[in-house]
């Protein structure tokens, strides 16, 4: 490449600037692609498979939003981000939304000026230890060496937990999950700590998953959810209500299998409103009337996405637990579509 192409690219970028700078929703429509920030690879949540296709729980949220806005679940550019780059990528407009198991905290919301549109997974930080250590509680870990995957709130929770229990530990911060796993398996640390869902996902890839146990203590609240920039409320609404549509669909029994017959019209007015056969919810949101239908057909409702990517039938094998519908005693609850 010579200088000229580089300047040419800059000029083209400069020209593109002229047409951009409207709302994110219009940008996405004009671009025909949704730029969605995901992690660099966590099996079950977002990881490319052998063919380079991104799959996972967070990825499905991106696909649902793309389907709702653009009508095409594959019109997504997945931008891999690290713990370090994710907030800049979002703040600078490189990505339209971030679905990268990011914990909703006060300072991220208020100080860093992001809007968390909801919670798609209620997580908490847990510990994994080899069975042979015979540890049954995190409080027995005095003096242990702890591998931490950096980039989330993990370090802070860990410091707080050990401080409040007045026990000592030695932290080993590690950038990627794969390297953390390597050190843990080689015995360079006694304990591996990250979000409980991540621990389960990691353990699923082990040669002998049965040799490792997750300790009962969950030391933090980690509500993970997609987030967008502050100040663009129209776009925030689109992402928020797409997530809610997935949740409501499960609550109302709308699945990817029966959605086409339900879209023909049902006796339940809320289903009709959701699927756009009644009312003008899509128009209010600035998208097509059948937006929610497209979003749900993309990968199924919340429950289907959960089961397919991280549920008990997958190697990751997470139970619904807190993430069951509120009607089943969980915390997943969507405001009504009305």
């Amino acid at each position: 490449m010579k200088k000229s192409v580089f300047f040419g690219a800059l000029t083209v970028a400069g020209l593109a600037a002229g047409v951009a700078a409207a709302g994110t929703l219009d940008d996405v429509k004009a671009r025909g692609k949704l730029n969605c920030g995901v992690t660099t690879g966590l099996v079950g949540f977002a990881a490319p498979d052998a063919n380079g296709e991104w799959n996972g729980f967070d990825v499905s949220v991106c696909r649902a939003v793309a389907a709702a806005v653009l009508g095409d679940a594959s019109a997504v550019e997945f931008v891999p981000t690290t713990g370090k780059t994710r907030f800049t990528a979002l703040a600078s407009g490189e990505i339209d939304m971030l679905a990268r198991n990011t914990t909703w905290t006060f300072s991220r919301d208020v100080d860093l000026k992001f809007t968390f549109v909801g919670v798609n997974y209620y997580d908490g930080q847990g510990f994994m230890v080899p069975k042979e250590l015979g540890v049954s509680s995190a409080k027995d870990l005095d003096g242990a060496t702890v591998c931490i995957q950096t980039g989330t709130t993990t370090e802070l929770n860990l410091a707080d937990f050990f401080r409040s229990n007045n026990i000592s530990y030695e932290p080993v911060p590690i950038e990627t999950n794969a390297e953390a796993q390597q050190q843990y398996l080689a015995g360079a640390c006694d304990v591996y700590t990250t979000d409980a869902s991540g621990l389960a996902a990691t353990r699923a890839t082990f040669e002998a998953p049965g040799d490792h146990v997750l300790l009962p203590e969950i030391i933090s609240k980690e509500p993970l959810g997609p987030l967008v920039r502050h100040g663009d409320n129209e776009w925030g609404d689109v992402v928020r209500w797409t997530l809610n549509a997935l949740i409501t669909a499960e609550e109302l029994g709308v699945t990817s299998a029966n959605i086409s017959e339900m879209a023909a019209g049902t006796n339940n007015p809320e289903i009709n409103r959701l699927l756009g056969t009644e009312g003008t919810l899509g128009e209010m949101l600035g998208v097509d009337a059948d937006w929610a239908m497209k979003a749900i057909s993309a990968g199924g409702n919340y429950g289907e996405i959960f089961e397919k990517n991280i549920g008990e039938s997958t190697p990751i094998g997470l139970a619904r637990g807190l993430n069951a519908q509120w009607t089943d005693g969980g915390l997943i609850y969507s405001p009504p579509f009305r």
Binding site: E155, L156, L158, A159, D160, F162, R163, Y169, E170, P171, V172, P173
Partner: peptide, 15 residues
């Protein structure tokens, strides 16, 4: 800072 560091040459705690 809120986090711990495993090797410190000067006194340091998570506070």
């Amino acid at each position: 800072a809120g986090y711990d560091i495993n090797q410190t040459l000067v006194e340091y705690t998570s506070q």
